[in-house]
Amino acid sequence: MTQWSEKEDGTGGFGGVVSLSVGADRLTETGRVATGPGKSAWGEGPMRTLVIGDDLWALDYQGLSRFDLATLEGGWAVDLP
């Protein structure tokens, strides 16, 4: 998800992944995690997410982030310049 800021300098935006829990009669946000190497003030979100084992991977134009799927702890993992 990309959330843009209303501040003039663009800070405060969010770029990352929103995790939802979904099922019959249930849709809740369980967390969100910022992705990317932290260089973008505009908070551009990733393009894709993958699940491998117990991990969430997020791909953006600069590389891959890796997080624990349950706790969403983790961070930048692989540069793809």
């Binding site: 998800m1 992944v17 929103v18 939802l20 829990s21 979904v22 393009m47 993958l50 699940v51 799927l69």
Partner: peptide, 22 residues
């Protein structure tokens, strides 16, 4: 979300009933 323009960005992981929106 990217999902709005490209369905391939959508991930549903049934094991944990999680949907991930990049």
């Amino acid at each position: 979300s990217m999902v709005e323009n490209d369905h391939r960005a959508f991930t549903l992981w049934p094991a944990t009933d999680q949907v991930l929106l990049p």
